[in-house]
Design a protein around this nucleic acid. Structure first.
Lengths: 110, 110
DNA sequence: ATAGGCTGTAAGCTGTTGCTTACGTTAGCG
DNA sequence: CGCTAACGTAAGCAACAGCTTACAGCCTAT
């Protein structure tokens, strides 16, 4: 588990702007200014979003001179997806068990 | 796509209490009071959480006399997981493409 | 009909979020 | 050394989220 805590990661992903940012820097690192150019809001607002994503462990930061490059922490996003799946999988296992039980009943008394 | 809109579903899942509620009613329907008994907060607070989950399409409501039974809308949760995966999969595809390109280069000039 | 559960809902409060404007800071360049 | 570009950060504000208390609406049983 890379992400610091699940709640902050979920909250970070709950914002559509932040999800778009994450998509932007999924394949290549981008500077804060380049990221901000993709949005209508001001640069400080984007910078704050970057802070939230970084705080949640979904983003890694590196420096290139006076610029700061951001890139998605892909394994962290995978962690969130995996957590959501394992959070939900007991429900599927239970469904499967119920189906099997019903199947056995059908065989027991036809 | 069952869920009304992705944003509301994400925001609904961002709250840990609501995720626990969703787990509680994943396998069997429960009344609002039974659900509230699992938490320290007051019953109205839980009722509001139920409203958020229902609004997001993650919960279905049925009536049993004076009680109201809630149950997770399993396909809606699956939708969210699938959306997250397809939202993130382009990144994986790109990684794969880069790996293949690198592989071809390795073959081209050894 | 009326009494009593079981519940949603309104009102009000507090903490948080997301935005903007203004300012501080660091790197690179003349 | 200044000067500029590229940033983060503080301050302030409107909107919202989540909680509690108080109240109103059903349904059932008597």
């Amino acid at each position: 588990m890379i992400i610091s805590d699940v709640d902050s990661a979920f909250r970070a992903l709950a914002d559509p702007t932040r999800r778009r940012i994450l998509q932007l820097v999924a394949n290549q690192p981008l500077s804060a200014g380049e990221i901000a150019n993709h949005f209508q809001t001001t640069r400080p607002a984007v910078s704050q979003h970057l802070g939230v994503l970084r705080e949640a462990g979904l983003l890694s930061e590196s420096r290139d001179g006076s610029r700061r490059l951001y890139q998605a922490e892909s394994m962290a996003v995978d962690d969130v997806i995996n957590h959501l799946q394992s959070f939900w999988s007991p429900r599927l296992q239970e469904l499967k068990r119920q189906a099997e039980r019903k199947e056995r009943h059908r065989h027991a008394k036809p």
